[in-house]
Design a protein around this nucleic acid. Structure first.
Lengths: 354, 354
DNA sequence: TTGTATGCGTTATCAA
DNA sequence: TTGATAACGCATACAA
């Protein structure tokens, strides 16, 4: 089915069909109806290829993220796709990280290779959710590749702004939530507080550790460096971090520990259990990034709800408006919300189900 | 940059450039090299639109799945993308289910709407991972839509074969693993075994419950219908199912329970805890579908590793070969593997970390 | 309001 | 081995 055939069957020219296809006002109601009927009857949809030739748009956007099995990225993607679809954009998803998964014959590509691929796909815009962009020292070659990409299509990045990068950034407030956890722990009477998880050299990690230290210093509380153990973002990393913490500061363990996210918290609690320690009895734990299921672990996890769903929406909205030529920067204030459950040891919450 | 400009700069015709682009043998080595150099220099990539006009291919495949935040689908997708990319195909991902996520202004589409969207995107093939296709009674309209889709592009479905549906199917062995769990529990001396989780009316659920009942009957063991509680596939569903089980058969509780997957197991264990019961002490639990992190929960989960990674690979391979016109049906034997940890109560495993 | 004609960037057919 | 050209399906400028 082509526009030609529709035109013939409708007894009009292709331009008229094209007009009804594109909601041009200058078509007589009678013809419009007739044509629309034929279109529906034959279930005709215009060729994206032919349209692309003319408009240079695909109505596709590319999403680059490190790991879709990570609940944080999965829920971000969900929100992104939902909003994109509403605006007639489909999403080409590129997952760049495979290290956790023993894929055979795995692809060895870096993000810059993905930029190239995505560009060849003629997407109308690119959304980058984390990855190399989150490093403290982003390689110059990466920024260069990013700028080169940006010159071809709009690029929106969910992450901290980087000097010399021309892309649009959606920044998260990484510090506020940590501070509220610290205050919560202090209020519960904790004096020695630790921090675990997060890959070193990644901005999310360092921003949160900075906020952690700073909020304690403001309150004139000591920070024991041994109580800060970085690793990565998954359960296995929470496990190893907690083991290391227990090993290196056996003489003066913290009474409370902040985990960078729920998976790390779960791994840490498991490690405590393996060492015969109880959470929250021996060490209380709270996490900075809530995922689903935090209400079902043992103990239930006290977490920050970062309201990440806004993030995803903001990012696509920004991207789509950039695709449409708008320069306007959107803004949103999302305040993390502390969900108090069991793992922090706050009294009277033993049975609560938020 | 167009093929025209490359041709001019190279001092040849567009046809010759097109030939080197498509690795045609009939180009003199000298010219080929020269042209390639210009291509690289200008970082030229041919327009997918123009190519699509001629070839009617986009080198994109569409993936339809219900919930990417579900670890089962996420890891399946990962494997699919990896293999697709290796074959120069990018993946358009469509997540059809949003119910678990309170997305504002959420899209209300059924899968057939997604079929339409995906077709408009001119993908070269469609991969369907679960969803309505898994229902016991697939609506005729759905099968009709599926066949209509199949008439336009190859469609591969990961799921049980359905009469009257012309798509290609990749079937999983849903029963084998359940049987091995039953045998394991019997070997541990359990007499009263239950089964929880899974949406009723879904083939995965009923296939596993059937296998559960059958393997017990073969061994002349009783099946207490009250010990079988369906719900859904997430932690909250494991929680509610276990509560119901405890409530309805307080006089004769099972000593072991099979959960349909790890999330359900986690929810169930949480429910037990809330009722003052211990796992595996009071009720042992094993799950039919292992996700990551099962080694970090409390207690560690005894699970089946379904080796789902093969599934994803098989599915794309099948799709790509169908796109290339092959009729050949691929086949693979993936045997579930029982990973024994703590929740089943098998002796001496208290500290094991697989 | 409607139709005609052109161009978008590529591949394929054919002729040289 | 190479080049000229038609064709792919659509949007749009222009003419009517």
């Amino acid at each position: 089915m082509t526009i030609q055939e529709i035109a013939q069957k409708s007894g009009v020219s292709v331009s008229t069909v094209s007009r009804v296809l594109n909601n041009s006002p200058s078509v007589s109601p009678k013809k419009r109806e007739k044509i629309q009927q034929i279109i529906d009857e034959y279930n005709y949809t215009p060729s994206v290829f032919a349209r692309g030739m003319v408009n240079h748009t695909s109505k596709n956007i590319g999403i680059i993220l490190p790991d879709i099995t990570n609940p944080y990225f999965a829920s971000l993607f969900l929100e992104v796709q939902n909003f994109a679809l509403k605006n007639q954009y489909a999403t080409l998803l590129f997952n760049t990280m495979f290290v956790r998964h023993q894929l055979q014959n795995e692809l060895h590509l870096n993000e810059e290779d993905y930029f190239k691929m995505i560009l060849e796909k003629q997407v109308d815009g690119v959304l980058i959710l984390g990855g190399s962009i989150d490093k403290e020292d982003v390689p110059n070659s990466f920024i260069h590749a990013l700028n080169q990409l940006q010159r071809r299509v709009p690029v929106v990045i969910v992450g901290s702004k980087i000097d010399g990068c021309d892309c649009l950034f959606i920044e998260r407030n990484l510090k506020q939530g940590v501070t509220s956890i610290v205050h919560h722990f202090i209020a519960l009477g904790h004096e020695r507080i630790g921090f675990i998880g997060g890959e070193p050299g990644i901005r999310i990690t360092s921003a949160r550790i900075d906020a952690f230290k700073h909020s304690l210093q403001v309150l004139n509380k000591q920070v024991d460096e041994r109580h800060i153990v970085t690793s990565d973002y998954y359960a296995q990393d929470g496990y190893s971090a907690m083991i290391q913490l227990l090993d290196t500061s056996a003489d003066s363990l913290p009474t409370a520990v902040i985990a960078i996210n729920d998976m790390v918290a779960i791994g840490a609690i498991r490690a405590m259990r393996d060492r015969g320690l109880d959470c929250p009895g021996d060490i209380a734990i709270a996490s900075c990034d809530q995922f689903l299921q935090s209400d079902y672990s043992i103990p239930r996890l006290t977490s920050l709800d970062q309201h990440n769903e806004y993030l995803g929406r903001m990012a696509v909205m920004q991207l789509i408006s950039a695709i449409n030529g708008s320069e306007e920067m959107l803004s949103i204030n999302h305040s993390p919300e502390l969900i108090i459950r069991e793992s922090c040891g706050a009294a009277g919450d033993a049975g609560s189900r938020t």
